[in-house]
Design a binder for these strands. Structure first.
Length: 296
DNA sequence: GCGTCCAGGTCTACC
DNA sequence: GGTAGACCTGGACGC
């Protein structure tokens, strides 16, 4: 039985700009239908622990969530959707911070700035680890392997992202040979075992009152997570003090603001410092402005 | 088809 | 604190 839940969105919410905000909609268990614009995702049900496949679409002032089954934890599903689409994020301060920057005027006009995230911080952490030191194609392959080979299937066969418990049972050899994680394999094993064994609780970072620098230090204590990965995850936690510089972002900055010449990171940091705690989001929007002409 | 080179971010050892 | 080399995969390239 098909069930549809409608969820009201904030006035300054854009489905298109949230789904296309970065590469996450390209990574399983997200599936973006390029023709219809529908975004699919496989949730973990709060009651049974089973996987629940859902399709989410833009309802104009609301999100329409289609679930192909009747029995599921409605409150958990809604909480997950609110988290994924950042419906409770207040971006008014961000729009104020960039109001006098001509190059970023489009952001508030388009209601952009919400960065899509996964249903759990653990999933975002693992995916971020999959983005380190490799091409996007390899990131996608590792994520696909994790979902297809360890994820729990929903009734329609689509699979959810594996839980920490499921990942914690996987050997380092399996990560190498089946997931193609290479040298990251022992990092995945250690991370999954820490979370499954309750020695590490990534979800608690959402509520953490630690200053960002302290929280970053804690995140960086995880093997395989360096400056870029920690700052990228912090952005998904709603903290934008860091730029999360990687080779792509640096390259885009050189093109747009430095006459295609390489420069030190300090120059990039100086360029965005005026945006204060919003500098990471300001830079990301600045570098991805053209995406929406080309991609969406 | 095979071998070589390179890009990508982090870790460790060393200065 | 800064730097060099290793880690591993996949793509590009030359033969």
């Amino acid at each position: 039985m098909l069930k549809i839940i409608s969820l009201e969105t904030p006035a300054n919410f854009s489905f298109k700009y949230t789904v296309g905000s970065h590469g996450w909609s390209d990574l399983p268990p997200f599936v973006l239908d390029e023709e219809t614009g529908h975004l699919s995702y496989v949730f973990t049900d709060g009651k049974s622990g089973n996987s629940v496949s859902a399709r989410i679409s833009d309802g104009g002032g609301k999100l329409d969530i289609e679930i192909p089954q009747a029995d599921f934890d409605r409150d958990k599903l809604i909480a997950d959707v609110r988290h994924i689409f950042r419906l409770d994020d207040d971006l008014n301060d961000f729009y104020t911070a960039i109001a006098n920057s001509n190059g970023l005027a489009w952001v508030a006009n388009a209601n952009a700035g919400r960065l899509l995230r996964s249903a759990t911080v653990f999933e975002d952490l693992v995916k971020t680890l999959c983005t380190t030191n490799c091409s996007w194609a390899l990131t996608r392959k590792m994520t696909l392997n994790l979902v297809e080979k360890i994820g729990l299937p929903a009734a329609d066969g689509k699979k959810a992202f594996p839980t920490p418990e499921a990942l914690g049972k996987v050997s380092e050899d399996f990560f190498r040979s089946e997931i193609r994680a290479g040298y990251r394999s022992p990092f995945f094993v250690e991370l999954a075992e820490s979370v499954a064994g309750s020695r590490l609780d990534p979800e608690s970072w959402l509520r953490s009152e630690l200053p960002t620098a302290e929280l970053k230090k804690e995140i960086k204590s995880i093997k395989g997570i360096g400056d870029y990965a920690a700052e990228n995850l912090l952005k998904l936690l709603g903290r934008y003090d860091g730029l999360a510089l990687d080779s792509w972002l640096r390259g885009q900055f050189y093109k747009k603001h430095n006459r295609e010449k390489v420069c030190a990171d300090k120059k990039i940091e100086k360029h965005y410092r005026k945006f204060g705690v919003w500098q990471g989001l300001a830079m990301w929007c600045d570098m991805t402005e053209k995406w929406f002409d080309e991609k969406v």
